[in-house]
Amino acid sequence: MSNHHNKMSDYEEIKHFFHDEMTMMFGGFGGVGSPPTILNHLLKWGVKDLTIIGNDTGFPHIGIGQLVAQNRVKKVIASHIGSNPIAGRLMSEGKLEVEFSPQGILAERIRAGGVGLKGVVTEIGVDDPYLNKGKTFLEMDGNRYLYESALVAEVGIVFAKKADTFGNLIYDKSARNTNPLIAMAADITIVEAEEVVGYGELDPEEIVTSGVFVDHIVLSKGVDWKWAWEAN
């Protein structure tokens, strides 16, 4: 890139990163903190057979939940799917593969992927046949543990309150959730920002995600959270 300080892109410029059968990580918790405009474009572009990694499957009409509801997702790795009844139905019908990971473990698996670890070792799930199914057990210090593999993805989509043109990011309160971890763990990180300022305009002390993790920034067309929550 000729000017490394400017990662601004339009939506057509990021389109080629998304394809059928890809692995994609997404920020958000119940829809809050998920990038709405990127997700709307994914619906338009028609990508399908996705493997998605994130906290949950949102709601049927919001964010990532829409991709699930339209049967575009073949596998999800998440901590729960309870707020999206369509996800539960597809799982029961064998049309959606779901790998459940306890929330803290999921976050740590993503973080491990971001910092180059191969996985994490935990006691959580050792005695739970639902959580340890197909997993590797380790014996250490006379105790039994589970090995949980690190998680990475081809593309990570992130939602930020404010970015500078280099990709340094600030998040909006709880919408921060898994976004900083996902920014680290994806090969290509695409950020949807509500506001973009010039390089050097953010207070370094407020920056949560360093621009070294960010490849592309698109400007958000906005989301009305009040409507989103009332719709459910």
Rank of each mutant, 00 (worst) to 15 (best):
residue 94 G to Y: 08
residue 51 T to K: 12
residue 114 G to W: 03
residue 42 L to K: 07
residue 48 K to H: 07
residue 122 T to F: 00
residue 91 M to D: 01
residue 90 L to Y: 12
residue 91 M to F: 02
residue 44 K to G: 00
residue 50 L to S: 04
residue 96 L to H: 02
residue 122 T to N: 02
residue 71 N to E: 14
residue 60 P to G: 00
residue 71 N to S: 12
residue 94 G to E: 11
residue 88 G to L: 14
residue 100 F to G: 00
residue 134 G to H: 04
residue 68 V to D: 08
residue 85 P to E: 04
residue 64 I to A: 15
residue 133 K to A: 12
residue 47 V to Q: 12
residue 78 A to S: 04
residue 70 Q to N: 11
residue 52 I to W: 02
residue 46 G to F: 11
residue 69 A to C: 10
residue 102 P to I: 02
residue 68 V to R: 06
residue 70 Q to P: 01
residue 76 V to G: 07
residue 95 K to V: 01
residue 73 V to S: 09
residue 109 R to Y: 05
residue 132 N to T: 10
residue 109 R to P: 05
residue 68 V to C: 12
residue 89 R to Y: 10
residue 61 H to W: 07
residue 114 G to K: 01
residue 69 A to M: 04
residue 78 A to I: 01
residue 62 I to C: 01
residue 93 E to A: 13
residue 111 R to L: 15
residue 99 E to H: 02
residue 82 G to V: 06
residue 126 V to S: 11
residue 77 I to T: 08
residue 97 E to N: 13
residue 43 L to S: 13
residue 107 A to D: 10
residue 87 A to M: 06
residue 67 L to C: 04
residue 71 N to G: 12
residue 79 S to D: 05
residue 73 V to G: 09
residue 90 L to I: 06
residue 84 N to R: 07
residue 32 V to M: 08
residue 64 I to L: 15
residue 44 K to Y: 00
residue 132 N to H: 13
residue 36 P to R: 11
residue 95 K to S: 05
residue 77 I to C: 05
residue 38 I to P: 04
residue 131 L to H: 10
residue 77 I to M: 08
residue 105 I to E: 12
residue 74 K to P: 04
residue 75 K to W: 13
residue 117 L to A: 03
residue 118 K to L: 14
residue 61 H to E: 12
residue 48 K to A: 11
residue 48 K to F: 03
residue 121 V to W: 09
residue 41 H to L: 11
residue 120 V to G: 12
residue 53 I to W: 08
residue 42 L to I: 10
residue 82 G to A: 14
residue 115 V to E: 04
residue 61 H to T: 11
residue 106 L to Y: 04
residue 126 V to R: 11
residue 125 G to H: 09
residue 128 D to G: 01
residue 54 G to M: 06
residue 133 K to C: 02
residue 95 K to F: 00
residue 117 L to Y: 03
residue 121 V to T: 12
residue 116 G to A: 14
residue 69 A to K: 05
residue 57 T to K: 13
residue 51 T to R: 09
residue 36 P to W: 04
residue 127 D to I: 03
residue 51 T to E: 14
residue 101 S to T: 10
residue 90 L to K: 09
residue 81 I to R: 06
residue 106 L to Q: 06
residue 114 G to D: 03
residue 81 I to G: 07
residue 53 I to M: 08
residue 97 E to Q: 15
residue 131 L to D: 10
residue 102 P to F: 03
residue 38 I to W: 05
residue 89 R to C: 07
residue 75 K to C: 13
residue 133 K to W: 03
residue 100 F to P: 00
residue 134 G to C: 05
residue 66 Q to E: 12
residue 52 I to C: 07
residue 72 R to H: 00
residue 125 G to I: 05
residue 33 G to Y: 13
residue 87 A to R: 03
residue 32 V to R: 10
residue 108 E to T: 14
residue 70 Q to T: 08
residue 70 Q to A: 10
residue 57 T to S: 15
residue 62 I to E: 10
residue 117 L to Q: 01
residue 125 G to T: 07
residue 68 V to Y: 06
residue 91 M to K: 08
residue 59 F to N: 06
residue 132 N to K: 13
residue 126 V to F: 12
residue 134 G to L: 06
residue 74 K to D: 07
residue 97 E to M: 14
residue 115 V to L: 02
residue 61 H to Q: 11
residue 120 V to S: 05
residue 80 H to M: 07
residue 78 A to E: 00
residue 35 P to M: 09
